[in-house]
């Protein structure tokens, strides 16, 4: 995979947040690559930093958060070098769309759906989104197209209704339309189906897949559910306690996980688990993370050097990347992409 077809590249991202009890090292070292036109899942357990990663890319980190190292390169431009004004004006909501987790909280209950969605569009594209005229009509026409694209029945009437008149699944569709309003190239979705039932979830996943194909979108899909990753994502990146531990094609990771954490975690899934062993120990606190590989205190294959430094990431010819010392010695050839 050459660097040229990458839409988003996150490299060695480190983020910390000072708290009353000390500095929390939320992200320790995160690498992520999103190729054009692909849906990349970011998966991990609670507290692994997956939502912080999504917020860092969007530039909506908490005020106190500090970026200690790393780059977030979007279309060849380091987003961390931009100031908030420029991020707001050019990138967020426009180049990068966002689908939030809870469809019940993300819409203001006191305004009509149409008013809210049109406001987003006017904010980012005062010229009508097509560079033509700047008339309200253009926005409205485009919004109706979008509502049709997300399969809202009777879009004209939908614009005049209030959020509570829609079901959870329909609200999530509205939010997807909102995220697509300004023709973004990247969409970030933070657990967009967690609040939904499986049959509704399937319909939303299906919609996301269709929209990605139709508009050539790339997507960063944050989830805790490997099953959803299997259903939707082309690639997947696994995180543990603020570190990216493994990444690659979805089938590859699900069938041939390499990192001990991924292996143990997948073995906990009830579809696979025979003895339901779980993973011994508990997740390290970001206030006092273990040195080196953060998983080593719980890792059955841990070696003394695991505690020395974060293991370098090894990528094989198929793009399967893993950050674990087990793959440093000759056991698995560390092929570099050409």
């Amino acid at each position: 995979m050459s660097a040229g077809d990458l839409l988003l590249r996150v490299e060695g991202l480190r983020i910390s947040i000072p708290t009353d009890d000390g500095v929390a090292q939320i992200l320790d070292h995160v690498d992520l690559r999103i190729p054009r036109g692909r849906i990349v899942g970011v998966v991990g357990e609670s507290g692994c930093g997956k939502s912080t990663l999504a917020r860092a890319v969007l530039g909506i980190l908490p005020r106190a958060a500090r970026v200690d190292a790393g780059r977030i390169v979007f279309e060849g431009e380091d987003l961390l070098a931009l100031d908030q004004r420029e991020l707001t004006r050019r990138i967020r909501g426009k180049e990068i769309g966002f689908i939030p987790q809870d469809p019940f909280l993300a819409l203001n209950p006191t305004f009509k759906v149409g008013t809210q969605l049109l406001e987003i569009m006017r904010w980012h594209a005062p010229d009508g989104g097509d560079g033509g005229g700047g008339r309200r009509g253009a926005h409205r026409a485009r919004l109706l197209d979008l509502l049709r694209a997300v399969q809202i029945a009777d879009p004209e009437a939908a614009l005049d209704r209030y959020p509570h008149q829609f079901s959870g699944g329909q609200r999530q569709r509205l939010l997807i339309a909102g995220a697509l309003a300004c023709r973004p190239r990247l969409v970030i979705a933070d657990e967009p189906t967690t609040a939904l039932d499986v049959t509704t979830q399937l319909q939303i996943l299906r919609l996301l897949r269709d929209l990605a194909n139709r508009f050539g979108l790339s997507m960063l899909f944050v989830t805790h559910d490997f099953g959803v990753v299997a259903q939707l994502c082309d690639d997947v990146m696994v995180m543990y306690a603020g570190q990216s531990v493994e990444g690659g094609g979805t089938a590859e990771i699900l069938e041939r996980p390499r990192h001990p954490y991924t292996q143990l975690l997948l073995a906990c899934h009830p579809d696979r688990a025979q003895d339901l062993a779980g993973i011994p120990g508990t997740v390290a606190s970001p206030l006092a993370p273990p040195p080196g590989c953060r998983f080593h205190p719980r890792c059955p294959s841990a070696r003394p050097d695991c505690a020395v430094a974060r293991p370098a990431t090894v990528v094989d010819a198929g793009g399967h990347a893993v950050g674990c010392v087990l793959y440093h010695a000759g056991a698995v050839p560390a092929a570099r992409p050409s």
């Binding site: 499986v198 049959t199 979830q201 399937l202 897949r209 099953g227 089938a251 699900l254 069938e255």
Partner: peptide, 25 residues
């Protein structure tokens, strides 16, 4: 059948469109 088909499973490369379409409950 619909419920089982819609439930996420740990198998990559599923066809999202294999399950029958369902409206809102």
């Amino acid at each position: 059948r619909v419920l089982l088909a819609a439930a996420p499973r740990l198998v990559a490369g599923q066809d999202l469109h294999a399950a029958p379409i369902l409206g809102e409950p």
